[in-house]
Design a protein around this nucleic acid. Structure first.
Length: 595
DNA sequence: AGCACCACTTAGGAGGCAAAAT
DNA sequence: ATTTTGCCTCCTAAGTGGTGCT
């Protein structure tokens, strides 16, 4: 089984050396951190340990050592001109930098949008105004970035033309330089970082109709960075970022109740960007296990929740009715809770509590409700589903005397629901229902296949592939429940057409074979045709379903591990390398495990 | 009660690479 | 041998939810 952290024998000394003293003293303080006792070299989950010590706001570490962050290189001028009003202009380097960002995106959908162009111009103008020779560049329509775009294409071509060996060598060299930044030492354990590169400056690409798309995201300097490590740790040297200036860290703190190593403020939304450990670290693993254990606990309380919302809907109090319906939707449709958003600053997306009158419609068919709205990441939720009559009646009532753009549930905010959920179960919040629903769906879907599979598949050729197909269907059902989507590949339609042609050819062949009255050949071919048709249907259904998101974030990995053990499916089929390592805590589960 | 702030999880897309198909 | 496909990793945006302050 893959250990979550494989110490590389070839690892450079730093940052491992300063942690030695804490390793010897097993943490070195009388107050244990969540992982204290892990100095035996075993993983946290191998010591009969669980994740119950994992708490937000709780102590996370005794000692924390790391080397800070890597900064992106400063911009280097290419001196390819901008064409403005049909005249070539060589831009000062700071103006050229921003212009080049646009040139790089010239042919994307973003760059064709008016808001993007407007925001870009506003950001760029601030730089252009700083120079007498560029002050006159004011109108986007007079700007032609073609020469810069061609230059970038040439550069890409050169890079692409490198041989495989050259690419490998370049990558190895990069890895060597970055290795010291790629790991931290937490209470004496070496742990991999998830990210350690400061985000480079660029034009903001929001999702959907984001009002800030195209704005310049500013370059981050050491002064913007807060470093978090233990007091006994050496503060990492501020790297030479190449501008010849002496830089300092913004702040150095020693907060051991948090798990971020570095952070800075993003210039677009003023939000914190953090450096965290990677998904296969002990911290993330414990947090993950705690999440699934909490979701499993909900099984013992779900009946109460359902009883409560049935009663709430019968109440004459509108606030209670609205609470009842929203909890119903969160429970039955696995909707996100939907906090308030500021549409001047963010894309207009909604979740359960922020649904508007316009997002919900009664269908002609009785008790069928049609929901259509943009959710997280501006992904469309479009679902027609049966609801209980009470829900339909109440929704119609909440819509009365309201404009399409009014909130459907004007008395419920996420806090109202979460305050209620806290009374049901410790730590229960709206998002737990998504985890619960996803995992219990996967578990029951896979259980369904257990019986079929054991009878019809065992000992047959191709059993493993067929089994794995069952798994994928179960996974797909969860993804559809959670509305996890992806853009269909641009080649999808063409690929489907090809498959159709293939089937048509086989069908012609079948006719010929039938004429020959070759029975064994006939039945063979029929099977092949059926299989090809099935594959085609599946491919089409999955064209914009994303299986990865539920696998990574919602499905208790123990369900998958147990199922693989029951059916002798190699675990690397559903969990390739990185997932195996992320879920290492789940590998020892017994085959009978039920979520 | 409402809000700002903070910590952390969840999310899809881009791009690179390797396996599969031709 | 070359093209196509599909998978994986990286990137960073976009959510949720808790806390503490006014």
């Amino acid at each position: 089984m893959a250990a979550p952290t494989k110490p590389k024998p070839s690892a450079t000394k730093s940052p491992a050396s300063p942690a030695k003293k804490s390793t010897q003293s097993g943490g070195g303080s009388s107050t244990p951190s969540v992982l204290q006792g892990s100095t035996s070299g075993k993983n946290w989950f191998e010591e009969g340990g669980d994740a119950s010590g994992w708490k937000r706001g709780g102590e996370k570490w005794q000692t924390l050592h790391h080397n800070g962050v890597i900064f992106p290189p400063l911009y280097e001028a290419h001196k390819v001109p901008l064409t403005y009003d049909d005249k070539d202009i060589l831009l000062p380097v700071d103006c050229e930098e921003v212009a080049t960002m646009f040139a790089a995106m010239k042919n994307t959908d973003y760059a064709k949008k008016e808001i993007f162009q407007k925001n870009f111009m506003k950001s760029w103008r601030r730089v252009l105004k700083g120079h007498a020779e560029t002050e006159h560049i004011k109108h986007f329509n007079k700007c032609n970035f073609t020469k810069m775009a061609e230059h970038l294409a040439d550069q890409a071509e050169i890079k692409k033309a490198m041989t495989g060996d050259q690419k490998k060598a370049a990558k190895a060299e990069r890895d060597r330089l970055e290795e010291p930044f790629a790991f931290a030492v937490v209470d004496g354990r070496k742990e991999k970082l998830g990210n350690f590169r400061v985000e480079p400056p660029g034009l903001f690409r929001g999702r959907g109709e984001h009002p800030k798309m195209g704005q310049l995201k500013a370059r981050i300097f050491p002064e913007d960075i807060t470093i978090n490590l233990s007091e006994d740790a050496e503060v990492p040297q501020v790297p030479d970022i190449g501008d010849g200036k002496k830089h300092k860290w913004g702040e150095v703190v020693h907060k051991n109740t948090v798990t971020w190593l570095c952070k800075w403020k993003d210039s677009i939304n003023g939000e914190d960007k953090c450096v965290w450990l990677s998904a296969n670290s002990s911290w993330k693993g414990m947090s993950d296990m705690a999440k699934y254990e909490k979701a499993r606990k909900l099984k013992d309380h779900i009946a109460q929740v359902r009883k409560d919302y049935a009663a709430d809907m019968k109440s004459s109090d509108v606030a209670r009715q609205q609470k009842g319906v929203t909890v119903y939707l969160i429970d039955r449709l696995a909707l996100r809770v939907g906090g308030e958003k500021d549409t001047d600053e963010e894309a207009d997306t909604v979740g359960c509590c922020s649904l508007r009158v316009e997002h919900v419609k009664e269908c002609a068919t009785e008790n069928m409700l049609h929901l259509n709205f943009l959710g997280k990441d501006s992904i469309e939720y479009d679902n027609t589903t049966e609801v209980i009559p009470e829900v339909m009646e109440l929704i119609k009532k909440f819509q009365k005397k309201k404009k399409p753009t009014d909130n459907l549930f004007d008395t419920v905010q996420p806090t109202v629901l979460n305050d209620y959920f806290h009374t049901i179960m410790d730590g229960l919040s709206a998002k737990v229902f998504r985890t619960y629903n996803a995992s219990i769906t996967l578990c029951s879907e896979l259980a369904k296949t257990d019986a079929q599979v054991s009878q019809s598949m065992k000992d047959k050729k191709g059993a493993e592939a067929a089994l794995y197909e069952y798994y994928n269907i179960a996974n797909k059902n969860v993804a559809e429940l959670c509305n996890h989507q992806k853009a269909a590949s641009p080649a999808h339609d063409a690929a489907m057409e090809k498959l159709r042609e293939k089937v048509a050819t086989m069908e012609l062949e079948l006719k010929a074979v039938k004429k020959e009255k070759n029975a064994s050949k006939t039945s063979q071919l029929e099977k092949r045709i059926d299989k090809a048709k099935e594959d085609m249907e599946m491919k089409d259904r999955l064209k914009n379903v994303s299986l990865g998101t539920s696998k990574i974030n919602y499905n208790d990995p123990r369900i998958t591990v147990a199922w693989c053990k029951r059916h002798d499916v190699p675990i690397h089929k559903p969990f390739p390398k990185t997932l195996l390592s992320k879920f290492s805590w789940a590998m020892a589960i017994e085959p009978e495990f039920k979520f």
